[in-house]
Simulated assay, not measured.
Amino acid sequence: MKKVWPAWLLLFLGAFLLTTAGVAKFWAPGEAERTPLNSYQRTYLTGTADKLDAATGKVETNLPVKITNITQIDPNKSHGDVVVFVTSTCVNIDTDNPPDCLRYSKQDPRLISNTQSNWAADRVTALAVEDPSVTNAQPVQGLTNKWPFNNKPITYPVWDDVTKKAFPATYVGNVTVQGVNCRQYHQVISHAPIDLGHGIKGFYNLDETYTIDQRTGKIIDQKLHDVRTLKDGGGVALDLSAEYTPQTIADNVKTAKDGAAQLKLIETTLPLVGLVVGLICLVVGGLLLRRRRGAGSDGSADQPVELSRS
């Protein structure tokens, strides 16, 4: 009887591929669409600002400004469902090539602000959550450093670290940035009371537009106008406009495209290839096995052939 192992091998391979396709289709998306636990990013915004000089009482105008956001994940506190972000935001007057982050202890006149924050977020929804491992003066709410996968044309709450509150960011339309399909959201904060430092009371106004990759939730671009005024007299303490640098946008686009390609491989390509190739293997394996068994049952394939004598 001829060997039938090729048929069984194809049947086993077909069953394996179909199982893999099912896992990739129905289980993998829930695992793939999660904020990774090894993320690190440094983004840059540039712009200009009018700033009150506390020493002279005069407002310096049209100062070049650089903003650096450093976001990384604390792997010791993050886990399967929750990711813990550690974020630094450094705002400097961009003269004489300052480092990304200046320290308050150095009393550098180029320093506008230097803040550090940490918060926990759901790895799927990207919304901030309360986590006992993260200490905050006040629970963080809304979206922080990332937006949801497959974000929708709706209004999302977005955390503002100046007021320590979440404010609505309203969907305003779709745009394409270097081949990436994005949604734009607009957030406005008006006349919010804040402490300007040194016990000085003031008001805070923010107008910010977020450009978000639809597929991965990656922030592609940000444009902001931040105005802080004195409560007494309404004089300007800070009037700052900034947006992502072209290099930061290009880096964000690449990250978004790489992430979307991985999701497509896991959620679309693998299930389709597994289904098609698996079915082919099952059909071919079944035909080979049937043929071998049929050939063996009538004996024609197993009988020796006698040579006729003349």
Score class of each variant (00 low, 15 high):
V4T: 12
W5S: 15
A7N: 12
W8K: 11
L11I: 15
L11A: 05
G14T: 05
A15L: 12
A15K: 06
F16Q: 10
L17D: 04
T20L: 15
V23R: 08
A24G: 10
E31C: 02
A32V: 12
T35N: 02
T35W: 00
Y40C: 03
Q41G: 04
R42Q: 15
T43A: 03
T46E: 15
G47W: 01
K51Q: 09
L52E: 05
A54T: 13
T56R: 11
G57L: 09
E60W: 08
I67V: 12
I67W: 01
I70R: 05
T71D: 05
T71Q: 01
Q72K: 14
P75E: 07
D81R: 03
V83I: 15
V86K: 08
T87A: 12
V91H: 02
N92F: 03
I93K: 04
D94A: 13
D94S: 14
T95I: 14
P98S: 08
P99Q: 10
D100T: 04
L102Y: 07
L102M: 11
S105G: 06
L111K: 09
Q116E: 12
Q116M: 12
W119G: 00
A126D: 01
A126G: 00
L127R: 01
A128S: 07
A128W: 00
V129E: 00
S133L: 13
V134P: 01
T135Q: 02
N136I: 01
P148V: 10
P153A: 15
T155G: 10
D161Q: 13
V162S: 02
A166H: 01
P168V: 01
A169N: 05
V172I: 15
V172W: 08
Q184N: 14
Q184T: 15
Q184C: 10
Y185D: 07
H186Y: 11
Q187W: 04
L196A: 09
Y204V: 00
Y204M: 00
T209R: 07
Y210G: 00
Q214C: 03
R215V: 09
R215S: 13
I220K: 04
G233Y: 06
A237H: 12
D239L: 11
D239T: 10
Q247R: 13
I249R: 12
D251P: 06
G259T: 05
G259W: 02
L265Q: 13
L265R: 11
I266P: 09
I266F: 08
E267V: 06
T268L: 11
T269Y: 11
V273W: 11
V273N: 04
I280A: 14
L289R: 02
L289E: 02
A295Q: 14
D298V: 01
G299I: 12
A301T: 11
Q303L: 12
Q303T: 15
V305L: 13
V305R: 10
R309S: 13
R309C: 07
